[in-house]
């Protein structure tokens, strides 16, 4: 039995401010909730709502978002002053989406792995034992964060570009290719989906984060050393297969490369991860 500093004797010595409150002297029976108990399951929208909230209500989640904001602000500031601010809208967009694409996957990873590392899975899967619905809710809510973030990236890039036009007197270049936009958005969203998938696959924050960040670098290092790996990389290294998207043109073969790499690094981890999630013992 742990000794607690909670005992409050009426008229006794003053209790320190940090002492925890005493339990009520009389236990009240919780009141009944009016109406019959539900006979239908938890609506999916509620699951998404809760998962979305869980991503943002912890310090870790909040700091990640603040971190992204700070990096974007720094990047835009540098661009604003560098070379007289003479950059096309597309370049500003890259500056706002890159930090998101780098860090938001971690939000996706944490959304899954914290259920195991913080052991909140006991509550989460206790309240919704149809775990596959939780898995989809996590993926959708993470992607929703990605869509909002990308929309914000567009707005910020436009504002920065307009500011450069107004205050630095540059010539505006608003040319954007639909494919480039798709590429930038896809880059953010695929990264998040990959993060969620890795989280489900590894169920462990450090493992998922390390693999997620080491993988692209490993490709470029190994690819430059081993020739057959470099051939494989054209099909499997997502950094390479995504590249044509940013350039705004894709050949049939490049679409095939992109689809293959997405299947291997996004779809497969998600599929296996969801399968694991629905079966794993929750402790």
């Amino acid at each position: 039995m742990t000794a607690t500093t909670t005992t409050q004797v009426p008229g006794g010595a003053p209790v320190s401010k940090n002492a925890e409150s005493a339990l009520p002297t009389h236990a009240k029976v919780p009141s009944r909730i009016a109406g019959p108990r539900p006979t239908t399951g938890v609506p999916f929208g509620r699951l998404v709502h809760v998962e979305l909230r869980k991503m943002l209500d912890t310090r870790a989640g909040r700091w990640l978002l603040i971190g992204i904001g700070a990096i974007i602000a720094i990047a835009l500031t540098i661009m604003f002053f560098n070379e007289g601010g003479q950059h096309a809208f597309g370049e500003y967009l890259q500056a706002t989406t890159m930090p998101m694409a780098l860090i938001l996957p971690v939000v996706g990873i944490l959304a899954v792995t914290s259920e195991w590392s913080q052991r909140t899975g006991l509550v989460t899967f206790g309240l919704e034992p149809r775990r596959i619905r939780v898995a989809w809710a996590k993926l959708l809510s993470a992607l929703f964060v990605g869509v909002c973030a990308f929309a914000l990236a567009l707005v910020l890039a436009a504002l920065a570009h307009q500011a450069a036009i107004t205050f630095r007197g540059i010539t505006g270049d608003w040319s954007t290719d639909a494919l480039v936009l798709l590429g930038a958005g896809g880059y953010v969203l695929l990264g998040i989906a990959q993060g969620v998938g890795f989280g489900m696959l590894f169920k462990n924050t450090p493992a998922a984060v390390v693999v997620f960040f080491v993988l692209p670098t490993a490709w470029s290092i190994l690819g430059s050393m081993v020739s057959w790996l470099s051939d494989a990389a054209t099909w499997l290294d997502m950094n390479q297969t995504m590249q044509p998207l940013f350039e705004g043109s894709l050949t049939g073969a490049q679409w095939a490369h992109l689809a293959t790499s997405v299947a291997v690094w996004v779809v497969a981890p998600l599929a296996v991860g969801i399968w694991r999630l629905t079966r794993a013992e929750v402790k």
């Binding site: 869980k54 912890t58 310090r59 870790a60 914290s114 913080q118 052991r119 909140t120 899975g121 006991l122 509550v123």
Partner: peptide, 8 residues
């Protein structure tokens, strides 16, 4: 498990 709550 009372300790199985997100610390944050």
């Amino acid at each position: 498990d009372a300790s199985a709550q997100h610390a944050g």
